[in-house]
Design a protein around this nucleic acid. Structure first.
Length: 456
RNA sequence: GUGAUUGUAGCUCAGUUGGUUAGAGCGCCUGAUUGUGGUUCAGGAGGUCGUGGGUUCGACCCCCAUCAUUCACCCCA
């Protein structure tokens, strides 16, 4: 008999882990709903044609493909088999794949249901996605994303509300030390124009995105090797190295971008978002305008976001941005504009674990355990158990006849904070022994008194 | 796809130049304690040293292969 194992990059979530994950998920879901987002779920698998070509060439390779059922080789020509080119026969033997993110299935859903959904459409979606990456720290092959997107409006209130939602989630989770980095594709384009690198934008963005990771010198090296001139690199870094508050950066860039239409658009939209935050009776706390932030680039066209928790060894825990042609890939002529962002629960979990931020209350499931000495006292306890549950208190009885030690050990293991001990004495006068498992304190109370105490 | 790393008890890890019966801490089980756990004390169970081969009188230790793990690069949540 072989030892069972899990596929690479996947995990079981035991009860202790689930309690903490749900603490995170509940916080996120609650905020999404409070901001008017509605839930959506889509299938784990999509047609491969829905997925391919949406994430670039790299992305296509990271897609998990599902082998066709039955005789999957019957439509493959002998010549193709002979050639042994895996890439060429994948489309013949696989027509489905596991979803790679939640945005593309969402776009597919919007196009398919265009006439039924309200506009603008605000949806949130919390489901696992799969990527055939090599796993490493903070990177899994199966992980959860929590997306919230709005399509059908280009109002910048959406961008402002994304910032508000991120801050509210983090406040609930008691994460204090984090940065919401914000930038705009227009600013990046403007930067490329100033550097005279319109042709080679992608290389520029990929390089400067690594700035805080590998440092200025390495980025310069990379740009030189990609054919950028010393002069244009200097232009780029003169702008990147500007130090100041977010609003100072806005003013500074406004001056730089007098001749760049997209740069100007980017800066004015960013400052509009910041102004909106004040209109919400809020501020730009935790928000940092980072000119070097580039992100995936694949489909973003407006504001882009990324959230990093400080002093942890985890990559970004959230990110997003505005895209103007989400649905175009599915033949939609209207080109709906959308903006959205996503939390990575697994990374949030890792970061919170590293910072020791999970509260104890979030980990206990049962509130109270009923312990007893024999069958008679156990049976007596059952109606008290029902009374507790009727009052909405999570309670359970130790099901077997066992030594008190074993019953209390069980409570400890499940982190149950209270125990009721019922012996023959308790059955006579109705006063139960109510025990606080942490302090060891005990008192004699009726079940009603216990309920009141726990509800208080 | 590229480059490293580690694999010994349920978990975290020791293990001497290659030498007889492979250890510790934590956890687990039993008892001290037939109405009280988390503290203490005493005892106990638990190992194909990842797997397969090779070198050797002799391998946890050296060599080769293989599988798994973790980390970094690319990319990303």
């Amino acid at each position: 008999m072989e030892k069972p194992t899990l596929p690479k990059g996947t995990r079981d979530f035991g009860p202790a882990v689930m309690a903490k994950r749900q603490f995170i998920l509940d916080a996120i879901r609650k905020v999404f709903q409070k901001f008017g987002f509605q839930p959506l779920e889509t299938p784990a698998m999509e047609n491969l044609s829905t997925l391919t070509g949406k994430y670039g060439e790299e992305g296509d390779q990271l897609l998990f493909k599902i082998l066709n059922s039955g005789d999957f080789l019957k439509d493959v020509s002998a010549a193709k088999l002979e050639a042994r080119n895996s890439k060429q026969i994948t489309t013949d033997i696989s027509e489905k794949g596991l979803r790679y993110d939640l945005t593309v299935p969402f776009a597919r859903y919007v196009v398919m249901n265009k006439h039924d959904i309200p506009t603008p459409f605000k949806r949130y979606q919390i489901q696992p996605v799969w990527r055939a990456d090599r796993p490493q720290k903070g990177r899994y092959r199966e992980f959860y994303q929590c997306d919230a997107d709005v399509v059908g409006t280009d109002s910048l209130t959406c961008e402002a509300e994304i910032i508000l939602m991120i801050r509210e989630v983090f406040q609930t989770l008691r994460i204090d030390d984090y940065t919401i980095k914000i930038n705009h594709r227009g600013v990046l384009t403007g930067l490329a124009e100033l550097a005279g690198a319109k042709e080679n934008q992608t290389a520029l963005f990929v390089a400067i995105d690594k700035l805080d990771k590998i440092g200025e010198e390495k980025v310069k090296e990379e740009l030189l090797s990609k054919g950028f001139t010393e002069k244009s690199i200097k232009t780029v870094f003169d702008i990147l190295n500007f130090q100041g508050t977010t609003s100072q950066k806005v003013v500074f860039l406004n001056d730089q971008f007098t001749k760049s239409e997209s740069g100007d658009r980017g800066v004015s939209q960013l400052s509009a978002v910041l102004r909106l935050l004040r209109d919400y009776n809020s501020d730009d706390k935790h928000v940092e305008f980072d000119i070097a932030l580039a992100r995936g680039l694949s489909y973003y066209t407006g504001c882009i976001f990324e959230v990093k928790i400080n002093n942890v060894s985890i990559g970004s825990v959230s990110g997003g941005g505005r895209y103007d042609n989400l649905t175009a890939a599915f033949g939609d002529k209207e080109n709906l504009s959308g903006v959205g962002f996503s939390f990575g629960v697994d990374r949030l979990y890792d970061a919170m674990e590293e910072l020791n931020l999970f509260p104890k209350e979030a980990q206990a499931s049962t509130k109270i355990l009923i312990c007893h000495f024999d069958e008679e006292t156990q049976r007596f306890g059952l109606k008290e158990l029902s009374a507790l549950r009727a009052a909405g208190i999570a309670a359970e009885v130790y099901p077997d006849q066992a030594k008190m030690k074993k019953q209390l050990d069980y409570a400890n293991k499940k982190m149950i904070p209270y125990a009721i001990v019922i012996g023959s004495e308790e059955t006579k006068n109705g006063f139960l022994t109510f025990k606080n498992m942490e302090t060891g304190d005990q008192e004699k109370l009726t079940v009603q008194q216990i309920i009141q105490k726990l509800k208080a």
